[in-house]
Design a protein around this nucleic acid. Structure first.
Lengths: 197, 197
DNA sequence: GTCTATACAGGGATAGAC
DNA sequence: GTCTATCCCTGTATAGAC
């Protein structure tokens, strides 16, 4: 048996981050205290400062890690060759990824205003680089004559908002399965950038 | 000339609400203090309690007033007779109304979690009754054979999210005019519920 | 109606013992 | 690595003078 006391930085660090993520998502960054986070982890408030220089760094770290993992995960997908299939692939990926990480998603989209300018710019750049992936798909499809788009930038904003909104209402075990939800959104997305009905 | 001192409750009350709306939207409810609001208005913190019993009532009041005005304003529109035109009318109304009130919109969608259960239920009911207006349009269009919809409830969620997202990026005097934005969103919305291209 | 003054709880963060 | 203890600030809200 390993001894009960000793170094725990390799386990406590992730626990701190997990607790912060859950609490920030549930109550909002500003409404959560370091003491609450500490209580969730089972340590005293002062001990948190072994794992983060301050509260805001904890928030920024969660956001950065989430967005970097999101982008890396998308780029790891084998790209479908036709814009039509590629868009469908994006919809499935985006919804699936977001449904699985509601807390991280919520924080990354809602707590931006609690970052100081430098950190805000960094996180915002990550977010825009992800959005640019969708915009590229739309532009490719437009160039190939597959999509009918008056404005690819606006269309990418509209679609991202539509897709991300799924996290506001989707519940595991609800009326619609994940696969059904993904299919229905993909159908709407594809129709919205196609030729007028 | 009217005297400089005396009763100001008829003017200070609205100023308190306006300041709270601006600050809550900018920094988040939890991050804004009563002292900050008071400073914006030009009174002491204690004086705010002449206009609200507490901070949360101030928030709930802003939300309720916004949603009630939104719903009343939509119901005051002369309904277009065909589902197709009615949906287009909804898109124009929704975007126009939301672009004009970014602060109120932001608060009503983001600060729900800061309400206690009773107030949450009240505000949430208002929000759902507004969403039901869109869902009704979609169902009517489906029944009339104008729209092709696998699931009107999901489609209404998807469209509301898409439309409301415009407040995240639209800026007065930007690349696209209001009218252009409304048109482009209306086109996408109509295509998304139409027949597959 | 607004003010000053203040009560009292809780915030983030640090120091130093163990 | 975690603890207790604590600093100092800020939070909401109230009391009582004017």
């Amino acid at each position: 048996m390993a001894r009960k006391t000793g170094s725990h930085s390799d386990i406590t660090g992730p626990k701190v981050r997990a607790a912060a993520e859950r609490l920030f998502a549930r109550h909002g960054y500003a409404a959560v205290s370091m003491r609450q986070i500490a209580a969730e982890v089972g340590v005293q408030a002062g001990a948190l400062y072994l794992y983060t220089p301050d509260k805001q760094s904890l928030l920024a770290g969660l956001m950065r890690d989430h967005l970097e993992a999101l982008i890396a995960s998308w780029k790891a997908q084998t790209p479908a060759s036709h814009p039509h299939d590629r868009l469908r692939q994006f919809v499935h990926f985006h919804i699936g990824y977001h449904i699985d990480r509601p807390d991280a998603v919520f924080i990354a989209y809602m707590e931006l205003r609690n970052l100081e300018p430098d950190r805000f710019a960094e996180i915002e750049a990550l977010r825009r680089s992800y959005e640019a992936e969708l915009e590229a798909i739309l532009r490719d499809g437009q160039a190939a004559g597959v999509f009918e788009l008056a404005d690819p930038r606006l269309a990418s904003m509209a679609l991202i908002a539509m897709l991300t909104g799924v996290t506001n209402w989707y519940r595991e075990g609800g009326r619609l399965s994940r696969a059904e939800v993904e299919e229905l959104y993909a159908d709407m997305a594809l129709k919205s950038v196609g030729r007028a009905a």
